[in-house]
């Protein structure tokens, strides 16, 4: 187990490859044999009705949950079953659907904490960059609890950037935020993807999806029921069934 650092770049391997992963909770099959891979710089949208298994899929990819079956590979490295911290150090970083800032810490410390297992020497410079990109420099000394919901999302995004990851998973990062903040997030994703970072984004906002995603994956009841670009998905009967059939 020596390849925990992110230097094992094999050109032939996608940054993220999920292979037939499954996860059961008691009687519920939350994720049911999902395969998905994403290329460098690609933004893949993961959509689907509530409870369709999107967040669980993210947890399986980032190591918060261990898959009952299937494999997860990062740049070709099989990280299935690894502890979360080790997977994180291999180059994947994620935000959480429920707010998960370090609430007794300032924005500054939240961001710096994200760099302790990475490039600590340049952490402060990188923090300035992240603060500037996300337009939160003015709240750097505020406690996490003193921020608006949208600002909290920005800081969580900033924390992810501080990791310098190859793959970023965003779980409903724009849910319920002010349009200005959504615009900031959108700009940041566009900018980072150009540097080759791969994104998987769970989104309920179709405008956002349409604007940033190269490709969409639609989940329903733990399975991928459709895949393709926005136009294809919008006209797909399976997708309509998934959304309309149960709401």
């Amino acid at each position: 187990m020596s390849s925990a650092s992110s230097n094992a770049k094999s050109p032939g391997h996608p940054p993220l490859a999920i292979e037939s992963v499954a996860k059961h909770f008691g009687g519920i099959t939350a994720v049911d044999g999902v395969s998905l891979s994403a290329d460098a710089g690609e933004v893949v949208g993961v959509i689907g009705p509530n409870g369709s298994g999107k967040s669980t899929l993210f947890n399986l990819a980032a190591g918060g949950l261990k898959p009952d079956a299937g494999k997860v590979r990062l740049q070709g490295i099989d990280v299935t079953g690894w502890p979360t911290w080790k997977i994180a150090r291999t180059g994947i970083s994620r935000t959480f659907q429920i707010p998960s800032l370090f609430i007794n810490m300032t924005v500054r410390d939240n961001l710096l904490a994200a760099a302790v297992e990475g490039d600590w020497q340049r952490a402060r410079d990188r923090m300035e960059d992240a603060l500037e990109m996300l337009e939160i420099s003015h709240v750097v000394d505020n406690l996490a609890t003193e921020l608006s919901g949208g600002q909290q999302k920005l800081v969580e995004f900033g924390r992810v950037c501080m990791r310098d990851p190859k793959v970023i998973l965003l779980d409903e990062v724009t849910a319920g935020v002010h349009p200005n903040i959504r615009q900031i997030i959108l700009g940041a994703i566009q900018r980072l993807r150009k540097t080759g970072i791969t994104f998987l984004v769970i989104e309920h906002d179709m405008e956002m999806v349409k604007e940033i995603c190269d490709r969409l994956v639609v989940m329903d009841q733990g399975k991928i029921v459709a895949e393709g670009d926005f136009e294809t998905i919008a006209n797909d009967t399976n997708v309509r069934k998934a959304y309309l059939g149960r709401t």
Partner: peptide, 24 residues
């Protein structure tokens, strides 16, 4: 020191700390 960030981060939110590579 870095240790301080690690320890306070895991106190506030363990899953988040782990997701940042901290070996909680």
């Amino acid at each position: 020191s870095r240790f301080g960030f690690r320890i306070k981060a895991l106190r506030d939110d363990e899953p988040a700390a782990e997701s940042l590579g901290i070996r909680t």
